[in-house]
């Protein structure tokens, strides 16, 4: 009796894990089935490369693809130095009390809803950019990536701090005993120890920026074009999906959003593979 209970429980637990893993595959299959008409006949690369002009029957997602890449890269370019500085401050340079306070603030920031950032972005940051830079409506690549950098900084900072805190105490003491100061400890002990955390933090955050919908949708302007400067409006793949969803189910526009979905899925899967290989490489080195 007890033995049967053990078996049944193990069976249920196994089933739950398998179902959950199966969902991962199922999502991709769903996207493929709905995007299939576009994928047949080698149209896939045309779709990625061609521009978007429904009047001529072109439903390429190149502008959105480039928009996503530009916004993400610019967002990372703002967020990385900011987060690196903050993380170094928290775990090395700041007095303990201030570092602890900053860490609490950063942890709290991870809980702020994305839509709230977007909302404040529209009514605070967009007018500021418009006034200061005199550039059009203010809804542009620059505004969106500034807000995105605030959104992902907490992720980056927590990853970096985690890596910085991992430096062995004895090595730090050795540097101190040789007369090294905090900065030398940081550069010669803490940083070399933390590189895998720093790298996987960057990859993870990049995945989050690529996949973020609301901020780009709300404050990047959503014009379908390849942005020529940071002050021009852009549309991301994610925003495109959200905007087109309302259209007719059988239209080619509608099918193109599944191409966006597949692209985003593959992007994010690639990030996961990258993080795992970073982890594997650093694990092998330590051994």
């Amino acid at each position: 009796m007890a033995n049967r209970l053990e078996k049944i429980t193990e069976w249920i637990l196994t089933l739950s894990a398998l179902v959950s893993a199966f969902i991962t595959v199922l999502i991709f299959v769903f996207l493929l089935i709905f995007g299939l008409p576009l994928l047949q006949g080698g149209q896939w690369f045309d779709l990625l490369a061609s521009p978007w002009s429904p009047r001529e029957g072109l439903y390429g997602i190149r502008p959105m693809l480039l928009g996503t890449v530009y916004i993400s890269l610019l967002g990372m370019a703002f967020a990385f130095p900011l987060s690196f500085g903050c993380a170094a401050l928290i775990s090395v340079f700041a007095p303990r009390s201030f570092g602890g306070f900053l860490r609490k603030v950063v942890q709290l920031m991870t809980g702020i809803p994305t839509v709230v950032y977007g909302f404040v972005g529209i009514f605070l940051l967009v007018p500021m950019v418009r006034e200061i830079l005199q550039g059009g409506s203010g809804m542009c690549l620059l505004t969106a990536s500034l807000m995105l950098s605030i959104l992902i900084s907490p992720t980056l900072i927590l990853f970096f701090v985690d890596g910085f805190d991992r430096a062995p105490r004895s090595h730090l003491d050795a540097v101190a005993a040789l007369g090294g100061n905090e900065m030398q400890q940081f550069i010669f002990v803490i940083l070399p120890n933390a590189w895998s955390n720093v790298l996987s933090g960057i990859v993870l955050a990049f995945g989050r920026v690529l996949g973020d919908t609301l901020i780009a949708l709300m404050i990047a302007g959503n014009a379908v074009q390849v942005p020529g400067s940071v002050l021009e409006s852009a549309r991301t793949l994610t925003a495109h999906v959200a905007l087109v969803i309302a259209a007719d189910y059988d239209s080619p526009e509608f099918k193109s959003i599944f191409a966006c979905g597949i692209t985003l899925y593959l992007f994010s899967a690639m990030m996961v593979v990258l993080i795992r290989s970073i982890g594997a490489i650093s694990g092998r080195k330590k051994r």
Binding site: L31, Y265, V272
Partner: peptide
């Protein structure tokens, strides 16, 4: 699989 699922953007 779970890592991939955790990384899939919410819009997807």
């Amino acid at each position: 699989c779970f890592d991939i699922l955790a990384g899939v953007p919410s819009v997807v």
